[in-house]
Amino acid sequence: MTAPAAVGLGDIAAQIAAIQSTIASLSARAAVATTAGSTTGVASSAAAFGAQYSSALASTTSSGPTAGTGSVTGDAVVADAKKYLGVPYVWGAESMSGIDCSGLVQATYKDLGISLPRVAADQAHEGTAVPSLAQAQPGDLLTFGDPAYHIAIYLGNNQLIESPEPGKTVHITDVYQTPTSIRRIVPAGPAAAPATTQVGGLSAAALTSAGLTPSVAAFAPQFAAAEAQYRLPAGMLAAVAQQESGGNPSAVSPAGAQGLMQLMPATAAGAGVNAFDPGQSIEAAAKILSGNLHRFNGSVPLALAAYNAGAGAVAQYGGIPPYTETQNYVRRIVAMMEAGG
């Protein structure tokens, strides 16, 4: 038997880049075919994360960054990337169900109106070169390998955010090796403040048009007021109520959770609220979700996972816990939030 020829790391990286490029090209064609003849609304309530569920592959043929890079800051890139914390690594994917390293980069910049190629090997040639990590600024791209087989977003203070490999989730870590190259996509220095996620204010009509039931939409004013007070993304509380109780203020789950927002008795007691009072239930849920967002760096998926499974479970697993119920819970609520834009 003839011994197989040795394959170097460079050969493997090149083969991976070629495969990724082919898949991205095929996916782009499928996305165009799927969306032909459809109409798509502009997400306002979930602008910062609604695009996570959109098909962004049709723009993969771009030869460079496009659209308003001058109005986007590196800090805005970092803030948007953090919304993907806890999303599991899935090769070739770029949604809240799963995302790979170059998908994280493309989705983050697309959320901010900047089009980048799909694969790391191509992203490594975008923007302008930065000489060393000492000159890097938040939002710069760190690439590894030539051609690049991995890519991450620099956060500053020698930290990066990445979607590393199968079995892991999007996370923040120290820069663990010297990047092969560093690319700057957004200009250095001060820029106009980026758009922020809309907080509070979805009407009953907007909620019902997104598929939420009239019984949930009936509480639209209370949801909007609490979202504005606690700086929650618009539509978040309504989507949670839809998933938790279907809009029934008298609901009691088999586990004993109560009311519109399905508070456990101990939770309601600790918050000093009556779980069966819709206004008090909404107020308590808003406080919990606001606390979760603060604890998990503004990540909507992790805040929702913590509401369902507990903040301790999210911290233990370093992301969305591997519970089917919780993963479906997060996926459904984020999808409802996107639809309510």
Rank of each mutant, 00 (worst) to 15 (best):
T2M: 09
T2D: 11
P4V: 09
V7K: 14
V7S: 04
L9N: 08
G10M: 10
D11Y: 00
D11N: 07
I12W: 09
A13F: 10
Q20R: 14
Q20D: 15
I23T: 12
S25I: 03
L26H: 06
A28Y: 06
R29P: 04
A30G: 09
A31S: 15
A33T: 08
A36F: 15
T39Y: 07
V42S: 12
A47N: 05
G50A: 15
Q52A: 15
Y53S: 12
Y53M: 10
S54V: 09
S62F: 03
G64R: 14
A67D: 13
A67W: 05
A67Q: 11
A81C: 05
Y84D: 01
A93I: 04
E94F: 08
S95D: 15
C101K: 10
S102R: 06
S102D: 07
G103K: 08
Q106N: 13
G113I: 07
E126L: 05
G127A: 05
G127C: 02
T128N: 15
V130N: 09
S132R: 08
P138Q: 03
L141K: 06
L141H: 10
L141C: 11
L142P: 06
L142E: 05
L142C: 04
D146M: 01
A148N: 08
H150S: 05
H150E: 05
A152Q: 09
I153L: 14
Y154K: 01
N158R: 06
N158Y: 11
H171Y: 05
I172Y: 11
I172L: 10
D174M: 02
D174Q: 10
V175H: 01
Y176K: 02
T178P: 00
T178Y: 00
P179Q: 03
P179I: 01
A191G: 15
Q198M: 14
V199G: 08
T208H: 07
A218S: 10
F219I: 00
P221I: 00
A225K: 12
E227P: 03
Q229C: 05
P233V: 04
A234M: 03
G235Q: 00
M236V: 07
L237N: 13
A238C: 06
A239G: 07
A239C: 09
Q242N: 06
G247W: 08
N248K: 13
N248D: 15
S250K: 06
S250C: 01
S250H: 10
V252N: 14
P254R: 03
G256F: 00
L260G: 01
G270D: 08
A271W: 00
N274T: 02
A275K: 12
E283S: 15
A285N: 04
A286C: 00
A286K: 03
I288P: 07
R295N: 10
F296R: 03
G298Y: 11
S299M: 12
A311R: 07
A315I: 06
A315V: 02
Y317M: 05
G319Y: 06
P322G: 11
T324R: 14
R331G: 04
I333T: 09
E338H: 11
A339E: 03
